Amino acid sequence: MATIQLTVNRKAYEVDVDPQMPLLWVLRDVIGLTGTKFGCGIAQCGACTVHIDDAAVRSCAIPVESAANQSITTIEGLSADGSHPVQRAWEQIDVPQCGYCQAGQIMTAVALLKKNPNPTDEAINESMTNICRCGTYNRIKKAIKLAAEGA
């Protein structure tokens, strides 16, 4: 065990965990932020996507020690009331079906729009590698374009 300093959603945390514990489990089980979901455990599906210093990362494959002293943002940290432009676009387009992957999808879309505020379909397809078992990809793309227009 080791004491690790984390900044999550602009709040400081000190956690006493195995430094190799995946960031996902620290966020969910130690800190109690359950918006970030477990999907595959091998960084393939994207349900666990969070931001580390504004970059989208798959938290199931990141050892917590790698995230120490960096700025971590989870879905709960985008906005307290769902007012982030991407969250509003998701709601307006009615993107979720089962909803399980949507936190990771939103976090990936936010990172995309920070890097590319007006993405083409090709750029969206290249960046949005998260898996949606319900197949809402067309609505996801439409919501990203709507969010880009609103930003």
Rank of each mutant, 00 (worst) to 15 (best):
I62T: 07
I62F: 15
P63W: 15
P63C: 15
V64E: 02
V64W: 01
V64S: 03
E65S: 14
S66C: 05
S66P: 00
A68C: 06
A68Y: 02
Q70V: 05
Q70E: 07
S71L: 15
S71M: 09
I72E: 14
T73Q: 13
T74S: 01
I75H: 01
I75M: 00
I75P: 01
I75T: 00
E76P: 14
E76S: 14
E76W: 00
E76R: 14
G77L: 01
L78R: 00
L78G: 00
S79F: 02
S79Q: 06
S79C: 13
D81V: 02
D81A: 05
G82H: 03
S83Q: 11
S83D: 12
S83P: 15
S83T: 11
S83C: 08
H84F: 01
H84S: 00
H84T: 01
P85M: 13
P85F: 02
V86S: 12
Q87Y: 07
R88W: 04
A89W: 08
A89M: 13
W90L: 00
W90T: 03
W90N: 02
W90A: 02
E91K: 15
Q92P: 03
I93R: 03
D94Y: 06
D94I: 07
D94R: 04
D94H: 05
V95H: 01
V95C: 02
P96V: 12
Q97R: 07
Q97F: 05
C98F: 05
C98M: 07
G99S: 07
G99W: 14
Y100E: 06
C101P: 08
C101M: 09
C101I: 14
C101A: 10
Q102H: 13
A103E: 04
A103M: 11
A103T: 15
G104N: 06
Q105V: 13
I106W: 02
I106Q: 06
M107D: 10
M107N: 07
M107G: 05
T108C: 10
T108F: 08
T108H: 06
A109Y: 04
V110G: 09
L113A: 00
L113W: 10
K114W: 00
K114T: 03
N118S: 12
N118C: 03
P119G: 07
